[in-house]
Computed example of a mutant assay.
Amino acid sequence: MSKLITKLSAGAFALMLALPAQAQDQLAVDSVVATVNGTEITLGHMLMVRASLPEQYQSLPDDVLWDGILDQIVQQTVLSQQSEGEESRRIALAMENERRALTAAEVIEDIVGETVTDETVEAFYEENFVQSEPTEEFNASHILVETQEDAVAIVDELDNGADFAEVAREKSTGPSGPNGGQLGWFGPGMMVPEFQAAVETLEVGEISAPVQTQFGWHVIILNEKRNQEAPALETVRGEIENQLSQLAVSERISTLTESATITRTVKEDIDTSVLSNIDLLEE
């Protein structure tokens, strides 16, 4: 049912967008803009459709959208008036779910609006970025070979003055070999544990003993290391706002759920395959 209505609505809307726009006066939300067999259509109905349009329609001029939206609602109203008797169970249940979801969404907006402010964002930034310990990052290169014996031989070769990048290009089996074994910058936890631990013990310019990982045997050189300073607030504002929003909503839901009287049917007492029996909606 819902898919059919969506397709009809989208089709009607697309067909009517090309119609000429009509002039209109400034209206209130409850102002009646049309009637269909006595059923009133208000500006509020149009505004709700306007707010939920797909992104590709959002930038269209209002005078174009006016006719398209109004004609869509008129057509939906004409069609809905053909239904005889009470609304179907499918529609009633869908409306209950939609009303519940929309109401919950409004509450979430209020929670976020109360919680995510310039002050809370700046405080989070100060605590988690400015005052936190700077992250140490490493720039390393490696040579990957299959056996420990090959790795030991490479260490000896490097100790005798061989160029690390040249040896990597010649002998490394890893994808970084053609690039002289360079891995670029990485922070804690970005490499497999054995490799990461070995890198963190090296001094700049030092070559490691052979290191075994799941990929084979590595000979590593630490090229550089640095402390990653705190990023500018504006570059992480969106990330901070998301974290604050999720935390605030999660905490409020937990509080409300704990204080609510909730009963659940014991799942083990139910044949959960009933959830796939959509035909029950027709009974």
Rank of each mutant, 00 (worst) to 15 (best):
S141I: 02
E96H: 10
G187N: 07
Q131P: 14
E106M: 13
D118I: 08
N139D: 15
L183S: 08
V78A: 10
A104N: 11
S172C: 03
R89E: 08
E96C: 04
D159E: 14
I143E: 03
I143C: 03
L158Y: 04
F138M: 01
E137G: 07
Q182Y: 00
A92Q: 15
F164A: 03
V155H: 00
D118P: 11
I154S: 08
S141M: 04
I143Y: 03
D163I: 01
T77E: 10
R99Q: 11
R99M: 09
Q148W: 07
T173R: 06
T120H: 09
P134K: 04
S83N: 11
S141N: 04
E86P: 15
E133T: 12
A168E: 02
D150Q: 15
E157T: 10
G113S: 14
A140L: 01
F124E: 14
A94R: 06
V116R: 10
A105V: 09
E87R: 07
S172P: 06
A165Q: 05
A101Y: 10
L183K: 08
E137R: 07
P134N: 05
V130Q: 13
Q182V: 06
W185T: 01
E96V: 07
S88K: 03
D159M: 04
R89C: 07
L144D: 06
R169A: 13
E133A: 12
E98Q: 09
I108A: 11
D118T: 15
E106I: 13
E106H: 12
V130C: 11
S141R: 04
A165M: 01
G113M: 04
V74A: 08
A153I: 01
P188A: 05
F164E: 01
S172V: 00
P188W: 00
E166G: 01
A92Y: 06
E122M: 14
V167P: 05
L79M: 11
E126M: 15
S80E: 08
T117W: 05
G85K: 02
E96N: 10
E122G: 12
R89N: 14
E126V: 14
V130G: 14
A165N: 07
E146Q: 08
T147N: 07
T135C: 06
V116L: 08
E133G: 08
F186H: 05
E126Q: 15
